[in-house]
Simulated scan of single mutants.
Amino acid sequence: MKGVPLLLNGAIKIVREDKKGEEILLYFLERGDTCASSFASAISNNKCGIRAIAEKESEIIFLPKEKLDEWLVKYKSWRNFVIDSYNIRLNEMMETIDTLAFMRMDERLYKYLTDKAQILRETSLNTTHQDIAYDLHTSRVVISRLLKQLENEGKIKLNRNKIEILEF
């Protein structure tokens, strides 16, 4: 990383990709957020182990890595922002692990949908069953069946390439 991104507007999903190209969603970034992995990558000059994908039109500024150390010493507010960012991302990573370890797939799916709606600030999500399956690291067939179940429970309404969240 040649700089650290700061998201001014929009929404970005952060995914981890394995050597076979399979992905799993780690967390979302929203306005005012930055990615802690980017800090570590920029400071250590190592490759970042994550990938960022814009979920909607986004505006980002990149802070030059040459200024990171200087600003950590010079500006207490910047140091607090960096530490808070690490803390937030660590908590989100633990939540992701908890979700994978302790939640049933239908619960994971509904949490994913409501989290995404909240980040995008939209109750109507333009997405496909296959895209959701990629994010949750499962099959499209499983997602389609569980989406139909959620629709029958009155939590969502399914349309072609669109899911409307009815309950939060």
Rank of each mutant, 00 (worst) to 15 (best):
G32Q: 03
L113N: 05
I53V: 13
L125E: 06
W71R: 05
E59H: 07
N80C: 02
E57N: 15
E122Q: 14
N126T: 12
T128M: 01
K74V: 09
G32C: 04
S37A: 14
S38V: 04
R31F: 05
Q130P: 00
T127S: 04
S77Y: 15
K47G: 04
N91A: 06
R51A: 11
R31M: 12
F28W: 10
S38C: 15
L113A: 05
E70T: 11
D135C: 07
I97N: 05
V73N: 12
A54V: 07
M93V: 14
I83S: 12
I60D: 02
L26A: 10
A40V: 14
E107N: 12
C48T: 05
N87W: 04
Y134K: 15
L72Q: 05
G21C: 11
T123Q: 10
N46K: 15
K111E: 13
L100W: 12
F81E: 04
G49T: 10
A42W: 03
I83T: 13
I88D: 06
Y27V: 06
L136K: 02
Q118K: 15
D131E: 15
L26V: 10
S44C: 04
S124G: 03
I61V: 15
F39L: 09
I53Y: 09
T34I: 03
T138Y: 02
F102T: 09
G49P: 08
T34F: 08
T34W: 06
L109C: 11
E30L: 01
S77H: 14
R104F: 03
D33S: 02
T128V: 02
H129V: 07
E23H: 13
E23F: 14
R51H: 13
N46P: 00
E59P: 00
R104S: 15
F39E: 05
E70Q: 08
D135A: 07
N91I: 02
C48Y: 04
N126Q: 12
